[in-house]
């Protein structure tokens, strides 16, 4: 092989690897990402049952029902609207009524959010950013009043 051929081989190899990486990324970005929504968004514009979404808001006070075999029913609210949600499993330690929550899953045909992952804040001073945004959008977040709205015991 001449020098030129060797260089060409190297460059084409790099080209192939780069092109496949870009291709994979573009493909995955159209398919492998999850959009963030708030309960108002979901009610106004319901995502298809196949689409994974990330739902953020506060756990509505008085909505949490823990049934046998780990089924948890609760409602997520952004102050304006609220959405029924179900989750099977152990909810995080800081999952409490009136506290911020981020749930990932799909909205089923009945408009119930079937969560496969539930995240709550992990310490007392932290509110998931997505929840803050959802509350801001619905006008329930008034930083000038001080703390975030806390519908229940903090």
């Amino acid at each position: 092989m001449t020098r030129k051929q060797r260089r060409l081989t190297l460059i084409s190899l790099a080209g192939i690897v780069l092109a496949s990486a870009v291709g994979l990324v573009l493909f995955a970005l159209s398919d492998g990402i999850t959009f963030f929504t708030s309960p108002s968004d979901v009610l106004a514009n319901r995502p298809s049952p196949e689409q994974r979404v990330r739902l953020g808001g506060l756990v509505e006070v008085g909505s949490v029902v823990k049934e046998a075999d780990g089924l948890v029913r609760f409602a997520v609210t952004d102050g304006k609207s609220s959405l029924q949600a179900r989750y099977v499993g152990i909810v995080p330690d800081l999952f409490r009524e009136g506290q911020g929550v981020v749930a990932e899953g799909k909205v089923d045909a009945n408009g119930v959010f079937i969560a496969d992952t539930v995240l709550a804040k992990h310490d007392e001073t932290y509110m998931p950013k997505e929840v803050v945004e959802a509350l801001k959008q619905s006008g329930e977040w008034r930083p000038e009043d001080g703390a975030a709205p806390q519908a229940g015991n903090p």
Binding site: S20, A21, L24, V25, F27, A28, L29, D31, G32, I33, T34, F35, F36, R52, R54, E104, E130, E133
Partner: peptide, 15 residues
């Protein structure tokens, strides 16, 4: 706002 999680990386990093 989106979240990029395991599905994205399974599709890109894995291959």
């Amino acid at each position: 706002k989106i979240s990029v999680g395991a599905p994205f990386f399974d599709m890109t990093f894995g291959p």
